[in-house]
Amino acid sequence: MAIGVKVIERPIAETSYVRAALQGMGRTLKHLFEQKVTTQYPEQKESLSRRWRGTHRMLTTEDGKAKCVACGLCPTICPANCIKLVPGEDERGNRYPLAFEIDEFRCIFCGYCQEVCPEEAIHLGRHYENSEYSREGFVYDLERLTAQTHPVCEMWDPADPKGE
């Protein structure tokens, strides 16, 4: 026996195998008829937090164009370096993204892009069912980002820290 192991005298009620076994049998039998707790996933879904940070979504203006003005703040702040932005400018001097890609595999879902965006264009989404057949499928381009319809993540509000 190892040094320093405490050997404690215990009453028979604690060490009895037969009693413990019978108690266990009773316990399992009781649970046999109890309410089940499994969420039947594809049919039932657990509700997500309003601040759940899932795959991105680009909001659009009324005429269906991305709100993004290609300011370049989100690729700058992105700690995972997963946003690729090529800015463009039309004849009236309005900046717009020529290319806007987010590699969702690199993304760490910190939400900085959404926080930093001056136009409230890029958002993280309340969405988690992402599956693709290839790695390339996880590089979301502008078209795909604008086409997403899931609800967007709400930002943390310092005035209402618990989100009530």
């Binding site: 399992t28 649970h31 046999l32 008829f33 109890e34 309410q35 089940k36 707790v37 499994t38 039947q40």
Partner: peptide, 8 residues
């Protein structure tokens, strides 16, 4: 076994 563990 599932019922005893409160599963389906």
């Amino acid at each position: 076994s599932a019922w005893m563990q409160d599963r389906y």
